[in-house]
Write a protein that binds this DNA or RNA. Structure first.
Length: 490
RNA sequence: GGCUCCGUCGCCAAGUGGUAAGGCAGAGGUCUGCAAAACCUCCAUCAUCAGUUCGAAUCUGAUCGGAGCCUCCA
């Protein structure tokens, strides 16, 4: 079984064959740093984070490049609004981006290049495009001549006639064709500028990705990713720039993640219906957000809502509870004896043994994380079946199966960035996280629990149930067990 | 208008030709003083219609509904 992935270029799933056996070059468009990141960015970065992790898990040596676009019209405009230097603004949001990605538990890419540190490479690339007739200088600008690149629009599968209707030439632009796009822009007063053969100016959007991917991954590389909205114009233009200059295929596999919707509508800055990552993380655990995103296939749209996030929280808790249950079970392990194997144990052993092959099969099919999570849920049920029976704590086969199941779940879950915390710690954190809204402190709850315990000891069940109901009304559930009473929030 | 994509149980969501995973919610049961948690059992023929096929949620056509791109956007 080998990895198959959906390639936007071909419009279908293809077997993944890297250019160099054992190695993968992957470039993912990062952000233009002029504002805080929203959940859409979170999704894109989490999706490619798990692709990065899975490729490594599958044994590839992966070079993952994710850029910062730190020079751009939007940055300049925002900096002007705030009356600060555009470079300072970019640095501020690069820091914010790093903090957010870190909070989301993302692995660091191999290389995180900044556009402004690659101006020389950009200028060289633009010169190369002019030299081979693909671009032209006009005033202090340089434009890409799309009509000279026959493959233009092969990624987004459109044709020039359709596109022409919507294309406009903005005032001041000196294009030959409405679809031509800027490779280099002449600098106006007060704008960041670098010396170039065409005078002081700055790179257009798109060219930085061609230049930086070429620098770190070569003229042809394996995987290029980003959100669906980058297919046109950004990635289309990257192809034009890179292939126009080198005459070689730019990228073998194009991967695009679906949008995050709010109320079934695309979340976007222009609609104003977006949530920033840092706002979301005030309410929801980062791993809950990741779990939520991974419950849907990466190419499908996903609807962001409190209900869906709460469901994700519930789902993830189920895993951590099962893991905590397994830990408690293993701690009680006594002298191991081998008896006739029971059905529950046989099922768990079977599930634990086949987990990795199921995991791989699902992930190899275009990163089907939703199916993987389904497999994990199956394992949890089998695991709970065993750990719910105390006698099994002295059964050698049960202990082996529980140990294997727990280890497998954590090991494979970690490939998706899931189950990375200590179960008890995570559950404790979740317990306390929502207490603010209830108006209760952990101490107050503990006091009520002991009051209820004395009532129960006196068989005063009316009083005992009253306490439980009051807590339940505030979202606190009590869990009685042989070891005493604990609580969690609903 | 052009080009894409989508429509699977109350909700979320896999499945893209071989007879519908999983989670949440719900019903019944075991456990419990009663509950909760956990476990057991139950719970869909896949928007509609017409085709292709031995066989379709999966392919084709039409219809209805939703979304995206064509302008900055993950």
């Amino acid at each position: 079984m080998s990895l198959r992935l959906y390639n936007t270029l071909s419009g279908g799933k293809e077997e993944f064959v890297p250019l160099r056996p054992g190695h993968v070059g992957m470039y993912v468009c990062g952000v233009t740093v002029y504002d805080y990141c929203h959940i859409g960015h979170a999704r894109a970065n989490i999706v490619f984070d798990i692709i990065y992790r899975y490729l490594q898990f599958a044994g590839y040596d992966v070079t993952y490049v994710r850029n910062y676009t730190d020079v751009d019209d939007k940055i300049i405009n925002r900096a002007n609004e705030r009356g600060i230097d555009s470079n300072a603004l970019a640095e501020e949001f690069i820091r914010a981006f790093d903090e957010d990605m870190d909070a989301l538990g993302l692995k660091k890419p191999t290389i995180e290049p900044k556009a402004t540190l690659h101006i020389k490479q950009i200028i060289t690339l633009v010169q190369r495009l002019i030299a081979c007739g693909r671009a032209y200088a006009s005033g202090g600008d340089v434009y890409y001549a799309v009509e000279n690149f026959p493959d233009y629009l092969k990624l987004s599968k459109r044709n020039m006639d359709e596109m022409r209707a919507g294309a406009r030439i903005a005032p001041g632009e000196l294009k030959r064709h409405p679809m031509d796009f800027a490779l280099w822009k002449t600098a106006k007063a007060g704008e960041p500028a670098w010396e170039s053969p065409w005078g002081a100016g700055r790179p257009g959007w798109h060219i930085e990705c061609s230049a930086m991917s070429m620098q770190y991954l070569g003229e042809t590389f394996d995987i290029h990713g980003g959100g669906k909205d980058l297919v046109f114009p950004h990635h289309e233009n990257e192809i034009a720039q890179s292939e126009g200059a080198t005459g070689k295929p730019f990228v073998k596999y194009w991967l695009h993640n679906g949008f995050v919707n709010v109320n079934h509508e695309k979340m976007s800055k222009s609609l104003g219906n977006f949530f920033t990552i840092r706002d979301i993380l005030k309410t929801y655990d980062a791993e809950v957000l990741r779990f939520f995103i991974l419950t849907a296939h990466y190419r499908s749209p996903i609807d962001f809502s409190d209900q869906n996030l709460d469901e994700a929280r519930l789902g993830l808790s189920r895993f951590y509870q099962a893991l905590a249950g397994a830990d408690a079970f293993l701690q009680q392990a006594q002298d191991k004896s081998a008896g006739p194997e029971r059905e529950e144990i046989a099922e768990l052993r079977e599930r634990a043994c086949t987990l990795e092959s199921r995991f791989k099969e699902a992930m190899d099919d275009d990163f089907n994380t939703a199916l993987v999570i389904g497999h994990f849920f199956d394992l949890v049920r089998a695991l709970n079946r065993v750990t719910a029976i105390p006698e099994f704590a002295s059964d050698r086969a049960a202990l082996a199966a529980v140990t294997a199941a727990r280890a497998g779940m954590v090991q494979l879950g970690n490939v998706l960035g899931l189950f990375v915390s200590d179960p008890q710690t995570w559950l404790e954190k979740q317990k306390h996280a929502g207490l603010g809204e209830t108006g209760l402190s952990a101490e107050a709850i503990e006091e009520l629990i002991s009051a209820r315990q004395s009532a129960r000891a006196n068989r005063d069940f009316a009083r005992s149930d009253q306490i439980r109901d009051e807590l339940a009304a505030k979202g606190i559930l009590l869990l009685d067990s042989a070891q005493g009473t604990t609580w969690k929030r609903k």
